[in-house]
Design a protein around this nucleic acid. Structure first.
Lengths: 244, 244
DNA sequence: AGGCTCCAATTGTCTATACATAATGGCCGC
DNA sequence: GCGGCCATTATGTATAGACAATTGGAGCCT
């Protein structure tokens, strides 16, 4: 059992705000509590709160304006490699209708393949989900997810037919580390059929593993039609302040 | 006229150290002066110095170790989406033989297509290069590059048959901002032939534009065989990149 | 109404200080 | 020598306080 290690307070604050933003609880434009308010709420000094907010601003999650306050940033319409986004919130934000299909749900003990995908030992209880996200009625991305039930027990009882597992996880489970692998592959028959593209069409694969204090939480493979989607990353040499 | 705005002191320190590192004056492993020392040198408090060093550490330029001090980081051998990468150095680091072919070199005034790719006005002098990087004798990536000769005049006389343009640019030209777009596409006939893969095979496309103070320097499209290559990004919640 | 000034809220930066934490390198006992 | 203990050093986090810069909005004047 991994006891929650005491994070530094600034990190804790940062996490809390981050979750509210990424989960969609605070939509773009929503006003983040002022430093004063957070200082009171978390019982710490303003410098500590400031450090958390400054980091969030550097990460592009919030925008800060003197006298006005801090506001949740409106994400660019393109998906950013550097962040974990809630697909549902993303689609709705872009003004399109969102729909979601749970195509399969299987609870089992990890096979050797599962074990390799999730970085757990074989036999660990896992939940395998396959779903399809649709934007404006058109297939957007195929999600093939494994959840480590040993680490996320609540997932066993969650109703993933109603709420996409990504949204649920983002809202429920804090994570400390993530890893993306991005590659390309030709769509196989099943994938092509699900996404409504030609078999063999190039797809963009985003493989993501998320960890909490070193133990794996979930692994997901997102398959995007290659011609309809791209990822974007914008950055400066040393992560210095961006002039927007 | 933009008069030099007085940067905050932490930013000034950060930039000074950054320059020493990026210019190679301080090689990887070189010990950065301690906070004490910098405090004395810049005549400011330790918190201010600490802020600069913390930012550099977050950006992965330095590594900090208690009791030992701060050291210039050795660039990671992992290919990270977040960094601009010298393909030659990377291949050699992985122990494979590196070879490089300049397939074409054309100097011209920007066509409308060029202008759109590079974000310059049509008519600007540009250099168009196409090259192939090989690792262990096998085609690794196809590079299709445009260089803005108005911004990088020295490129006109550089011998890109000897040194890959990416390496040359990285060594010569400082950049302030970059943008990645990652997508997937099926290989067309020419691409397939160059990379030695089947026509229609899925390829990973990395489109990168680099800027200096707002003006575009270069645009490059890297085409990787989708099955042989992937990009990796490791990060923590707020987007602070972890150097592992 | 329209325009002006001024106040106050909020963020941005900086300082001085304090204590926690990690780890190197030497001291000491054997 | 050798092994373990410990002082020292450097970073990591946190605090309280201060002043600067920006700007939304209230209130005032015309």
């Amino acid at each position: 059992m991994t006891r929650p290690i005491a994070l530094p307070r600034y990190a804790e604050i940062q996490r809390a705000l981050e979750r509210a933003i990424l989960s969609g609880e605070w939509p773009p434009g929503h006003r983040v509590p002022s430093e004063q308010e957070l200082t009171r709420r978390y019982g710490c000094s303003r410098m500590t709160v400031n450090r958390a907010l400054t980091a969030l601003a550097a990460a592009g999650l919030i925008v800060r304006r003197r006298r006005s306050g801090s506001f949740v940033a409106t994400p660019s319409s393109e998906e950013t490699v550097l962040e974990i986004h809630d697909i549902e919130a993303d689609v709705r934000r872009s003004g399109k209708a969102y729909r979601f299909q749970l195509r399969s749900r299987r609870e089992r003990r990890a096979t050797r393949t599962d074990a390799a995908r999730l970085a757990v030992t074989a036999g660990t209880p896992v939940l395998a989900l396959e779903c399809l996200h649709l934007a404006a009625g058109q297939p957007l991305v195929l999600e093939d997810r494994l959840i480590n039930l040993a680490a996320v027990e609540a997932a066993r009882d969650a109703d993933f037919a109603q709420k996409p597992p990504g949204s649920w996880l983002l809202a429920q489970i804090p994570w400390s580390e993530a890893e993306h692998q991005i590659s390309a592959a030709n769509a196989d028959i099943a994938t092509a059929k699900a996404l409504g593209i030609a078999p063999g069409a190039a797809c963009l694969l985003v493989r993501r593993r998320t960890f909490q204090a070193g133990s794996p939480l979930t692994q997901v493979v997102l398959t995007y039609p290659g011609d309809r989607h791209h990822l974007v990353a914008r950055f400066s040499p040393a992560g210095s302040v961006q002039a927007s």
